[in-house]
């Protein structure tokens, strides 16, 4: 948790657009984190805890692996 997410990528920005243009603030409020943290996660600068990752997937109503991907270089 929390280290720079070099190997973990995500589709949060795409999913926000697909779900009718949810803003970072909307997502942050729904998950219970700050907008700055959503921004850091989107930019792959911060890897969230499992709880937050599952909460984000729950907001988009998709499985976790459709939001976050783990890929070795």
């Amino acid at each position: 948790m929390g280290k720079r997410g070099g190997l973990i990528s995500n589709r949060i920005r795409v999913l926000r657009e697909e779900c009718g243009g949810i803003t970072q603030q909307d997502l942050a409020d729904a998950v219970g984190i700050t907008r700055q943290t959503v921004n850091a996660i989107e930019a792959n600068k911060y890897s969230p805890s499992l709880e937050v990752a599952f909460e984000i997937a729950r907001v988009f109503k998709v499985p976790l692996e459709q939001v976050f991907q783990y890929g070795k270089p």
């Binding site: 948790m1 929390g2 219970g32 700050t34 700055q36 943290t37 850091a40 805890s49 937050v52």
Partner: peptide, 11 residues
């Protein structure tokens, strides 16, 4: 008004 703190802030 937003005074909330999350896991990233704590880290």
């Amino acid at each position: 008004q937003r005074t909330d703190e999350d896991e990233r802030d704590r880290l």
